[in-house]
């Protein structure tokens, strides 16, 4: 066994121990309840004219009976409020000290590049104005090292469960990122 193999296997063991464990603090509460300004901003960005998001009259007449948030906006509600100062120096991390153990392990092993590759949502119900969403994220899998077009990498998959104030599940999301060792960059 070469020292390199030994290092890889130690990393594999450390990563394997994190499977099934929460990512980061475990539970993230949305900074704001579901609200019209953020929905309007989101719909404007994608030029989405669906009236059930912003037009009370049309929404009332629809199957939903009231304004709803775009179901696929789910992930946006629990995104961290960023500290803009220093964001570049933190490699894009929105806030200080939010690095999940699994990401730190991969970063420290040289897998500093990050690329989102898959996102899979199941939506149980649309969100209404005033709903407060919380998210719990758990590591599902970490792949072995693979050759990718960007360099050697590992695929990290986590599963987030989103719940409302009552603790009812409103949606789930499986999210996969590639952590890679950038090649050809100097």
């Amino acid at each position: 066994m070469t020292p390199g193999d030994h290092q890889t296997s130690a990393l594999d063991e450390a990563l394997a121990a994190l499977v099934g464990q929460p990512v980061g603090n475990g539970r993230t509460v949305a900074p704001d309840p579901v609200n019209q300004p953020m929905i309007r901003h989101w719909a404007a960005a994608f030029e989405d004219a669906n009236p059930v998001y912003t037009d009370v009259e049309a929404a009332t007449a629809s199957r939903f009976g009231e304004i709803v948030a775009p179901p696929l906006m789910l992930q946006t509600w629990t995104m961290a409020t960023p500290t803009i100062t220093g964001i570049r120096e933190r490699g894009g991390s929105p806030v200080e000290g939010d690095d999940a153990a699994v990401l730190s392990l991969l970063d420290d092993a040289g897998f500093v590049g990050t690329l989102a590759t898959n996102s899979e949502f199941e939506i149980m119900r649309p969100l209404h104005l005033g709903d407060r969403v919380s998210a719990t994220t758990v590591v599902e899998t970490v792949s072995e090292e693979k050759r990718t077009r960007l360099g050697p990498g590992r695929f990290l998959t986590w599963v987030t469960t989103y719940v409302d104030d009552a603790g009812e599940v409103v949606g789930t999301q499986r999210f996969r990122i590639l952590k890679f060792k950038p090649e050809g960059l100097s």
């Binding site: 989405d48 004219a49 669906n50 629809s62 775009p70 690329l115 898959n118 899979e120 949502f121």
Partner: peptide, 25 residues
């Protein structure tokens, strides 16, 4: 995800609700 949402409901209309989406980049 936002573009997919618009693409799907632009076609199906405001009473459509996306209940599942799986995308690969």
């Amino acid at each position: 995800t936002g573009c997919c949402s618009r693409f799907l409901t632009d076609w199906a209309g405001p009473d459509a609700m996306v209940t599942r989406l799986a995308i690969r980049l």
